[in-house]
Design a protein around this nucleic acid. Sequence first.
DNA 1: AGGTGTTTGTGAAGGGGTGCACAAATCGCG
DNA 2: CGCGATTTGTGCACCCCTTCACAAACACCT
Lengths: 230, 230
Amino acid sequence: MSRLPEYLRALHVLADAGHETVSSEGLANAAGVNSAKLRKDLSHLGSYGTRGVGYDVALLVDQISSVLGLTQCRTVALVGVGNLGHALAGYDGFANRGFRIAALLDADRSRVGEEINGLVVRHVDELPQIVAEESISIGVIATPAPAAQAVADQLVAVGVTSILNFAPCVLSVPDGVDVRKVDLAIELQILSFHEHRKASLTALPATGGSALTALPGGLAATDTQEAIGT
Amino acid sequence: MSRLPEYLRALHVLADAGHETVSSEGLANAAGVNSAKLRKDLSHLGSYGTRGVGYDVALLVDQISSVLGLTQCRTVALVGVGNLGHALAGYDGFANRGFRIAALLDADRSRVGEEINGLVVRHVDELPQIVAEESISIGVIATPAPAAQAVADQLVAVGVTSILNFAPCVLSVPDGVDVRKVDLAIELQILSFHEHRKASLTALPATGGSALTALPGGLAATDTQEAIGT
DNA sequence: AGGTGTTTGTGAAGGGGTGCACAAATCGCG
DNA sequence: CGCGATTTGTGCACCCCTTCACAAACACCT
C-alpha cells in the first residue's frame, strides 16, 4: 500500500540508530500508524517477523525495497524548470532514496542550455532521444497547468507509464498509466479548512457552529497526520 | 472533505471559461471524480443546485470558499529556506489561491538577511515577534528532517495550530494542532511500486508474478488519479 | 397549462479499510 | 525441561466511503 514508503523511511532511521530488530509497536510509532495496521500490512508481504522478538530491520528494509521496486535505481525525467522544477532538480531527498534525476526538460527555449546541479536543461522535444539514452521510468511534470496535458501526452507517447504531476490540473492519460498528483495549494487549503473549523467551534462552543461549519463530522477525518502524543 | 479544494480549482477554470452553470457531471469530469460523489459532497454543504439546470458557478465558488475559510486571505510563515523552501517562497501558485507568505525564516544565520521574492529572511528565533506583527495562521516546514521537530515545537509555542510539513519525518504535536505531510520522495516510491508491479505482470502474464509482487490486489488501489478517458 | 427531458438529491447495497482482542509461537530463565 | 513474558499473525465486528439507481423537482417547449 501507500504506507510502505513511510515504513521504509522509519526503518532507515532505526537502522541508522543501531537497532537490529523492531517490534511492531516501535515501528508503528516511528511511522505514525496503528501497530495492528502495521502488522497486517507487513503480513501481506509474507510474514518476516519472529514472535516474541519482532522484525529484523535489515531484512525488512530489503523486503520493502524489493516490493517497491527500489532494488534498481530508478531514473526520472523532470519537465518544467520553473520555480518548483528548479528546486526539485536540486532536492537531495531524491538521490538519497534511490532516485536519479537523469534529464531536465523545458518547453521554453530560453531556458535550454542552462545548467542546474550538473545537468543541462534540454528542450522537451528531445524527449524521444533522451528516453533512448537513459531508461526513464518516471516522469515529473512541474510546468504551469496549461502546459501539463501536452507534456503528459508527450511522456506517454515515448513510453513513460508513471507520472508525478505538480501542475494544478487533472490529466487525461490512457489505461495503464499511473498519475499521482501533488498540489501544494490544495494542502494549504485543507489546512485552512481545519483552521476555519477550529475558529468557528471555539467561537460558538454551545451551538457547534453554523450548518456550514459543523458538517457531519466526516469532514475532519482526512488522512492528516493527527496529533500524536507530546 | 479534502476534495473541496479540487472542486474549487475546477470551478475557477470553468468560471474563467465563461460558464455560469455546471452540471454535476461536468464538474465531476473537471475535478476527476464520480458525479454521484460530487453531488453528495455538495449536498453536505446545503444543496445549492437547481434540478434540471445544475449549479451556479459563482455561487458555488463563494460557498466552497466560505467553507474552506478562504474569505480571508490567510498568511503563512515558511521555515527553512533551503532548496525546497526557496522554491516555495517564489511559487506563485500560493498567492493566486488566497495565501500570502508573510515571513521567511531559517535557523542558519548565514542565510538571515537574504532577500527572496521581496521578503527578507529572518532568524527562526524571531518567531514570537513575527507572529505579533502578522497574524500567522499556517506554518510551513521545509527544513531538513532533524530540525523539523524543533521548528514544529516553536511554531506550536507561538500559537500556530496548522502545519504543512515537507520534512521526511513524523511530527509530534499536541491535540488541536493539525499537521499535513508532503513527502516528495514517497510519491516517487509509490510510483516506483506501480511501475515494478506493472513490469512483473507483463513479464509473467500467466502466473501473475511471485507472491511478493502479486499482492492481494488492494495494494494497487491507492488514491491515485487513475486513468481517465483519453 | 401540460407534457417531456434533464438534473439534483438521496436511499440502499456493496466493498474496503481499521482496530480490537485473542490464539499461536518464540525466547529466555530458572 | 518447563514456564512465563513478549510479540506476531489474524478472525471478527464495525464504520465509513463509494457507487448505483431512482424518485422528486425544475425548465423548456408546444
